[in-house]
Computed example of a mutant assay.
Amino acid sequence: MTYEGVLTKMQTEFSNPIQYYLVFENSFLSLNQLLGKPMEISFVGYQCLHCGKKKKIFRQGFCYDCFMSSAAAGDWIMKPELSTAHLEIEDRDLEYEKRVQLQPHIVYLALSSDVKVGVTRGTQVPTRWIDQGAIQAIPIVEVPNRYLAGITEVALKNHYADKTNWQKMLKMNPETSGPMVDLIKEKASLKYLIPKEVQDYYDLNANDLYEMHFPILSYPSKVNSLNLDKSPNFSGKLSGIKGQYLLFEDGTVFNVRTFEGYVVRITI
């Protein structure tokens, strides 16, 4: 059976284990059902997620022109502390920026490769942690806008990583990796590390610890990243799914999110 369409990040369902779906315009693929089975991924072309044109993808699923102009690719996306909508200051499109920035945001600790600090919109819980391949996560504060979340993350970056070591994350088997960091204790220890403007949003007693269980038959000991530009055709047996990665039996891993905007043909 063959499926063809534009890659976007895998859709997920928070269950035990996490359920994964590849959604195309006219079809979808339930990936959990393919575990232990062979599949083929073939590169067909490009289609910008913003303008829809068949132009080479530059970054985040956008062609170069859209990445440089779209409000959805502003610097504040990756650096929340640069958000200015709360000041009525426009970056690229104030109405869009207000919709995204002026809503509840959560600063959290997550255990993916190591303990990391991050920011996500309240509506993206627990999706954000699933996408990162975190096996546990805990909210630190919920604040009313992206700017406050951003300055909190900046303050905590002095004490925690803010990026995931993707290779370590993919190899980490929670059943064999030894004792895990106690995220509840970590949260309790950091109140006075966060900015004064955010102190009132900190609740020591709100300890909603999330646990993520990923569908993995076997963990890789070594990983080799599949690049569709260099290897437009790949075949392998699916052995697991973690974060936004497909894991194959031979150690090849495919980061679906990296190749958003690529048109692919998947044969199973």
Results as ranks from 00 to 15, higher is better:
Met1Thr: 13
Gly5Leu: 02
Val6Phe: 06
Glu13Phe: 08
Glu13Ala: 10
Phe14Tyr: 15
Phe14Ser: 03
Pro17Trp: 07
Leu22Phe: 13
Phe28Cys: 14
Leu29Phe: 00
Leu29Gly: 02
Leu31Trp: 04
Gln33His: 12
Leu34Gly: 06
Leu35Arg: 13
Lys37Phe: 05
Pro38Ile: 04
Pro38His: 02
Glu40Met: 10
Val44Glu: 11
Tyr46Gly: 05
Cys48His: 00
Cys48Ile: 00
Lys55Leu: 08
Lys56Trp: 13
Phe58Gln: 00
Arg59Ala: 06
Gln60Glu: 12
Gly61Val: 01
Tyr64Ser: 14
Tyr64Gly: 10
Met68Lys: 15
Ser69Met: 12
Gly74Ile: 12
Trp76Pro: 02
His86Trp: 15
Leu87Gln: 15
Leu87Glu: 11
Glu88Ala: 12
Arg92Tyr: 00
Leu94Asn: 01
Lys98Ile: 10
Arg99Gln: 10
Leu102Asp: 02
Gln103Thr: 14
Gln103Gly: 09
Gln103Ser: 15
Pro104Val: 02
Ile106Arg: 07
Tyr108Ile: 07
Ser112Ile: 11
Ser113Arg: 06
Ser113Tyr: 00
Ser113Trp: 02
Val115Trp: 12
Val117Ile: 04
Val117Cys: 08
Gly118Met: 04
Val119Thr: 10
Arg121Phe: 05
Thr123Leu: 14
Thr123Tyr: 15
Val125Met: 03
Trp129Ser: 08
Trp129Thr: 08
Asp131Pro: 05
Ala134Met: 05
Ile135Arg: 09
Gln136Ile: 13
Ala137Ile: 04
Ile138His: 02
Val143Glu: 00
Val143Tyr: 01
Pro144Ala: 06
Pro144Phe: 01
Leu148Gly: 00
Ala149Glu: 03
Gly150His: 03
Thr152Tyr: 10
Glu153Tyr: 11
Leu156Ala: 13
Lys157Trp: 07
Lys163Trp: 04
Thr164Ile: 11
Trp166Ser: 07
Gln167Met: 11
Met172Gly: 05
Asn173His: 08
Glu175Cys: 08
Gly178Tyr: 09
Gly178Arg: 13
Gly178Ser: 04
Pro179Tyr: 07
Leu183Gly: 07
Leu183Tyr: 11
Lys185Met: 12
Lys187Val: 04
Ala188Ser: 15
Ala188Asp: 15
Ser189His: 07
Leu190Met: 14
Ile194Val: 03
Pro195Ile: 04
Lys196His: 06
Lys196Asp: 13
Glu197Ser: 04
Glu197Lys: 05
Gln199Phe: 08
Gln199Thr: 09
Asp200Arg: 11
Tyr201Trp: 03
Leu204Thr: 01
Leu204Lys: 08
Leu204Cys: 06
Leu209Lys: 13
Leu209Glu: 12
Met212Phe: 14
Phe214Arg: 05
Leu217Phe: 04
Ser218Ala: 15
Ser218His: 13
Ser218Asp: 15
Ser221Pro: 01
Asn224Ala: 09
Ser225Phe: 15
Leu228Ile: 10
Leu228Pro: 05
Asp229Ser: 11
Ser231Phe: 09
Phe234Val: 02
Gly236Arg: 09
Ser239Lys: 14
Tyr245Arg: 07
Leu247His: 05
Glu249Arg: 02
Glu249Tyr: 11
Asp250Pro: 08
Val253Gly: 04
Phe254Gly: 01
Asn255Asp: 15
Val256Asn: 05
Phe259Glu: 01
Phe259Met: 06
Gly261Ser: 00
Tyr262Ile: 03
Val264Tyr: 06
Ile268Glu: 12
